[in-house]
Design a protein around this nucleic acid. Structure first.
Lengths: 345, 345
DNA sequence: TTGTAAGCGTTATCAC
DNA sequence: GTGATAACGCTTACAA
């Protein structure tokens, strides 16, 4: 009783055991439903725990069992709609599976990502969910060291690393966009690109070049501009593109932020969408419909990315022993045509 | 060496000590910079730790020191732009102060919020940052029990609880909106309300009634409609309001989600903004400028809410002993006039 | 069915 | 300066 005051006022298993008149091990068993024991003692222990409002220390439990039921989650920017949604999806799925999430924001820096990784490992997380900003293999290896926790990448990966990856169908998304513009008769098309250090950035850029090539259309390095996922970057890139002597007649934005930047640039320049220049984008934000003009976009469920990644990770943590092949899942995307491409819906 | 294989392949302090040829206590001291010890041994230990890639177990450390350097963060919905931004602000500030964040999403349910609280306490977090969906005092007391961890509320609080609160200036924000509409000549104004269970919902509703009263304008319960922060709810409420025989000439949305719903409703009904009905809103999302028409809104820095809350919490955790008065901070807001109110900027 | 005791990886209090 | 040793709060063989 007085004991409680001393040790941080926490009720411990010892208190419960004493109150119930049994040993600590019996109390432990009763609470965890392990081993056989009489109904009377079990009830007594449960009752004692209830009365004392006992809450087992996860710390002590984890130290003993070498499992924390905690997973680390690393993203370039939690406040971005995509990552926020993915986080929500993952958090929900993980909580259902009995895991807590420890969150880190790498702030678009590979260096901070490495630090986050180490911090999370020091906390002995049972698994890791990461969207990398582009660590190299060496950097990654150095960060995790000899540690062997299951890890799954989502949205952005390091080839050959991790027990799984969950990526959007970037290839298909960009192809849908370009095909659609070509159907509208466009031939000079440019891409507003994001960071090529990230998988989604590089895949979308490559997919763009592929699609253009497939249609027999010209596509040089000059037609793929930008390297940051910021609307400011989208604006600058668009301004630059539209200032050409022979400007593109259509713009493909690699993300909605970039598209917003393009929209702003067009207003500044007095270019009308889609008449002067068409605009289509990856990411179908919930406000796309309400913009002027409504934006033609690639839609998908961002929370699903988090959920699938979580599912893969939970599986990997479950049978940690066996060494199975890394699993790769691709999240499907679809085209939502509105007015910014030239459609008159 | 072989030791490592046995115990989860983790390098422990014992390994470091052995490698450096010193005792565990000395190794600990060297790594933590406590106590005086010769430069030679300190170097030896540091070197051993480096070579072995030693990473102290935060688990063991926490169990021993009774401090986890972890804070729990509870929000109604991480994927909402506001909470995502607040989270980012808080995470950054906490990380700088040496704390990790354990995230929980209450999914708008008081019940789940209670569960989250208990989970976090079981993990022995050093502090709590929570935006409540509206637990009652009793529910709250029951959840935390006799536990005494510093807690600060942000955006939504429980009166009389916690070591501090960080709220937006809801009163001022709504007043600015109503005043502005009145200046435009509006007299029949209605409010699209959010959940009155949350502080921001109730304060905004009350502020609206106050402002109307102050201007000598009529304001009954019928003029304050809705009770959820969803755009779908905003749409339904708007539809209902505009279907009246004597519809309001201006709508004040309590949040940008609600405003988006209103926008959608107006389109469906063919009502033109601001000519047929004016629309203004709390929350200045980055796309407000690009909507049609651009939305007049109350702007503020959502990340700042998180940062301030984190600062308050860190302070409270630092001098946990002393019992000082709860601190309350109010985040200032400002009006950004665009076209949806009738301005012709 | 229940109790005893060892141990998880640290830090802190003593001695030496 | 440095090293035993005892916790921290729990789980789990192994005994009884």
């Amino acid at each position: 009783l007085r004991n409680r005051l001393r040790s941080g006022s926490e009720v411990t298993l010892a208190d419960v055991a004493q109150h119930a008149g049994v040993s600590e091990s019996t109390a432990s068993r009763a609470l965890n439903g392990r081993g056989e024991l009489s109904d009377r003692t079990r009830q007594a222990v449960l009752e004692a725990a209830r009365v004392l409002q006992f809450q087992p220390s996860q710390l002590a439990r984890s130290l003993r069992t070498a499992t924390t039921h905690t997973v680390g989650f690393i993203v370039p920017d939690v406040s971005s709609p995509f990552y926020a949604a993915a986080l929500k999806g993952a958090q929900g799925a993980l909580e259902q599976a009995g895991y807590r999430v420890l969150l880190m924001d790498s702030a678009q820096s590979a260096e901070r990502e490495v630090v986050s990784l180490r911090t999370l490992l020091a906390h002995r997380v049972d698994g890791l969910l990461v969207s990398t900003v582009g660590m190299g293999h060496d950097q990654f290896e150095h960060a995790v060291g000899r540690r062997v926790v299951p890890l799954v990448f989502f949205d952005s990966m390091i080839p050959g690393e991790g027990e799984g990856t969950v990526l959007l169908d970037n290839q298909d998304g960009i192809a849908l966009l370009v095909d659609h513009l070509v159907q509208h008769g466009h031939r000079r098309i440019a891409l507003l690109a994001g960071s090529r250090e990230e998988t989604s950035g590089s895949e979308r850029a490559e997919a763009f070049a592929d699609a253009m090539r497939r249609h027999g259309l010209p596509c040089t390095d000059d037609d793929i501009v930008g390297e940051q996922w910021l609307d400011a970057a989208g604006r600058v890139a668009s301004l630059q593109l539209l200032a050409r002597h022979d400007p593109p007649t259509a713009l493909v934005a690699s993300s909605v932020e970039l598209a917003l930047g393009a929209l702003a640039a067009c207003r500044e320049l007095g270019r009308r969408i889609p008449d002067d220049v068409a605009l289509v984008t990856f990411d179908d934000a919930y406000f796309n419909e309400l913009l002027e003009p409504p934006l033609t976009a690639i839609a998908y469920d961002p929370a699903e990315v988090g959920r699938r990644a979580a599912a893969l990770l939970v599986e990997a943590m479950r049978d940690e022993g066996d060494q199975h092949e890394p699993r790769h899942v691709t999240i499907p995307v679809r085209l939502v045509a509105r007015r910014s491409c030239g459609c008159t819906t």
